[in-house]
């Protein structure tokens, strides 16, 4: 009875923290979105900002800055932040690996390889086809990661998954470099060498949006099942969960969202590692609370970092991917050390 009461209390406590996390996150996101639209290399007034959004005049340069440069870039950042953090959280839940992230695990490298491959050998492919190839590359790399991690007596363990992911990531990066060396680097491919949303256009956003929304919706739909899965395969089967379907759906979510992020911004790692860890610290391990929180905080994180990247050396651009990596690497080391501590009971 006491245990039941304690669990109920914890649930309520996490629920309260979720509401606070979402309220504060959404509030901050809104503030930074306005800041993102207002600040930049060119100074614009609030009147221009308003008119650029709601009374657009093609002949007014400031309106063009607002509607055709800052707004699609903001939306791209939000989509990438949501995609990577939700994909990271789902991946961590699905593999029970706290170090999982689409960038670290090599899934993004697979996507990049597929897109570069397509650009060279199928140069006339549309942007929609590019998303398909990006997903295909992500799928192949995921299969290979599992395959390599599975080899050996111990089978799949979180550490082996990370090592396997890093190996596959290196393999795909090397093959991509080989192809580029052989065929030459085109301007289009440069986007996939360092993550940057500086040149995001409406077409990137509009083509990716349906896939992004579908991936995100599917993630929310399986959030309860992911929470159950966290109790272990045997327990979740005992509770009537179809683990195979859940794992397949989770993998699909990760592939689509990771591929979308690659298409929009190029390679960006660590968002999927950092955000879910921070979120779980606040709202616990219930994925019905984790995933929406990840979406809000992931979007907030990428928007804030890109805002810094835009104004730190203005009127020049600093690639947001590099800035995120600079933040992500120390975090990765911190998490690795903590995992090691946990493993030894620390």
């Amino acid at each position: 009875m006491r245990e039941k009461l304690r669990r109920r209390e914890r649930k309520l406590y996490n629920g309260t923290k979720f509401v606070i996390c979402m309220s504060v996150g959404c509030g901050l996101l809104l503030i930074f979105m306005i800041g993102f639209m207002y600040f930049g290399a060119e100074k614009i007034s609030f009147a221009d900002l308003w008119n650029g959004l709601f009374h657009f005049d093609e002949g007014n340069f400031n309106h063009v800055v607002v509607r055709d440069m800052r707004l699609p870039r903001l939306l791209a950042d939000i989509m990438v932040g949501v995609s990577l953090s939700v994909a990271g959280a789902v991946m961590q839940g699905n593999t029970k690996n706290p170090m999982a992230d689409s960038g670290i695990m090599g899934i993004s490298s697979g996507s990049i390889f597929a897109v570069v491959f397509m650009m060279i050998f199928l140069p006339d492919a549309s942007r929609l086809e590019r998303i398909g190839y990006s997903c295909l590359g992500a799928g192949i790399s995921t299969m290979m990661i599992y395959l390599v991690a599975f080899i050996g007596k111990k089978g799949i363990t979180p550490e082996r998954m990370v090592l396997s992911g890093m190996a596959i990531s290196t393999l795909f990066s090397s093959i991509t470099s080989g192809i580029v060396l052989k065929e030459g680097l085109t301007s289009e491919m440069l986007k996939y060498t360092a993550g940057s949303s500086a040149n995001a256009i409406w077409m990137d956003v509009s083509v990716s949006a349906p896939f992004f929304l579908a991936g995100f919706a599917l993630a929310l739909m399986i959030s309860r099942s992911l929470t159950v899965m966290n109790l272990g395969d045997d327990v979740s089967k005992g509770l009537g969960a179809n683990t195979a379907i859940i794992k397949l759906s989770s993998t699909l979510v990760v592939l689509v969202l990771s591929a979308i992020a690659v298409i929009i911004i190029g390679p960006v790692g660590y968002v999927g590692l950092m955000v879910p860890h921070i979120v779980r610290h606040f709202v616990g391990t219930d994925y019905r609370l984790v995933l929406p929180s990840c979406a809000v905080l992931g979007a907030l994180f990428v928007v804030v970092v890109d805002l810094i990247a835009r104004i730190m050396i203005a009127p020049l651009e600093f690639p947001v991917g590099i800035l995120i990596t600079m933040i992500g690497v120390p975090f990765f080391i911190f998490v690795s050390r903590r995992q090691r501590g946990d493993a030894f009971g620390g």
Partner: peptide
């Protein structure tokens, strides 16, 4: 430090 660094799209016309 500038060469090879992209110019902001907003400032390019300058």
């Amino acid at each position: 430090d500038n060469p090879f660094t992209p110019i902001s799209n907003e400032s390019l016309r300058n």
